[in-house]
Design a protein around this nucleic acid. Structure first.
Length: 346
DNA sequence: GCCATCAAACCTATTACATCA
DNA sequence: CGTGATGTAATAGGTTTGATG
């Protein structure tokens, strides 16, 4: 089931193409490659997006011009500033040489899985020459500061405690500015990592592969959250627009009905379906003679809406008598209805 | 070809910690 | 200095998917 809503000129003004649909979205792809320039937002209970859910979700398809999308400022300025401030203190919690050694031993278990696939990458890049094309030697980062314990930053204390607690408690590790920037760059290229890429990144940044993996997971989650906020905001505006449009149409309908009572002459017009042309805001009838909606019809002979059945019927098809008109099944209220092709019986 | 099982990858929610106002 | 808010690394649990027997 899919419900499409075309907003016509209202949205066209903004250069947007909105499709509000009741359907099932594809969700995130495993390879992390989003369809270029097009995104989908799903609303609804969906535990995991890789398989279509039997229950319908509201899907918003957003075209490139719609939302800044991936062009969102990321990270937000405040965050960037803050991150910069933190990193410029020069302390890198992952850089202490003793930690690297201890960590290497501690992470042996979790690295075992990746060892096979990473063999080539690991062999080609030792911690000291892992920079390769990458300009920064992250393994030496922590030693660039004033002291060997991490550059005299205000995190030196936590770093020290992190080293000697033997991993009993979970410690919060802050990535350095360079590490974050490099991870960001990688994320721009690939939102997901294959094992080789993960290993290579971990090597280059002197992080555990698990850390790289977690960073990408959290990064994806943040991106999605941010995008959801943007999309929700946009949906809200769309809802307001539709509400306003609905209000306008209701008002116009009331006016037409009032017109009908004031000028019963027009009653004989088989105004079966009045469609609002979204571009010119004129009313046209699907099967009625051209005289339908006389106020507007005078100046809009060919409906721009084209094949939607809005074109007026040729004069020779007009009913010849009032009786025929009122006995015609076409003479129904203004509400839209299926239009029988057969003319009314006389 | 179909099915059960398993491991890997991923997602989501949550926790824990660091930092800042 | 204490505290709440915020950002984010890390964890836990669940789902999906592909490989394998």
């Amino acid at each position: 089931m899919e419900l499409g809503l075309s907003l016509g000129e209202t949205m066209a003004d903004a250069g947007r193409d909105l499709v509000l649909g009741l359907g099932m979205g594809a969700g995130a792809r495993r390879d992390g490659e989003a369809e270029p320039g097009r995104r989908e937002l799903e609303f609804g209970a969906r535990r995991c997006g890789r398989r279509p859910s039997p229950e319908p979700a509201v899907r918003l398809t957003l075209l490139p011009g719609l939302v800044p999308g991936l062009g969102l400022p990321w990270p937000p300025p405040s965050e960037a500033t803050r991150h910069l401030e933190a990193s410029t203190r020069g302390f890198d919690v992952n850089r202490a040489p003793s930690l690297s050694a201890a960590g290497a031993a501690a992470e042996d278990d979790e690295e075992r899985d990746d060892a096979g696939a990473a063999g080539a990458a690991a062999a080609s890049s030792s911690p000291n020459n892992s920079a390769g094309s990458f300009p920064t030697d992250f393994s030496a980062h922590g030693q660039t500061g004033p002291g060997p314990s991490g550059g005299g930053g205000d995190r030196a204390g936590s770093r020290a405690s992190d080293e000697d607690d033997g991993g009993s408690a979970r410690k919060k590790l802050r990535l350095s500015k360079e590490q974050s920037a490099f991870l960001e760059e990688s994320f721009k290229e690939h939102a997901t990592l294959n094992p080789k890429q993960k290993l290579a990144l971990a090597k280059q940044l002197n992080l555990r592969p698990r850390q790289v993996e977690v960073w990408f997971q959290n990064r994806r989650a943040r991106t999605k959250l941010k995008q959801t906020e943007v999309d929700c905001e946009y949906l809200k505006r769309c809802c307001e627009t539709l509400t306003e449009e609905n209000r306008r149409l209701q008002k116009e309908l009331a006016e037409l009905r009032a017109l009908k009572t004031v000028h019963p002459f027009y009653m004989h017009l088989p105004a079966t379906t009045l469609s609002m042309c979204p571009s010119c805001e004129r009313v046209a009838s699907t099967s009625a003679p051209a005289a339908a909606a006389p106020a507007q019809a005078a100046s809009s002979s060919p409906s721009p809406a084209g094949g939607g059945g809005i074109a007026a019927a040729p004069p020779e098809q007009r009913p010849s008598s009032f009786a025929a008109l009122f006995s015609s099944p076409l003479s129904r209220p203004l509400a839209a209805q299926p239009q029988p092709q057969a003319p009314a019986s006389s």
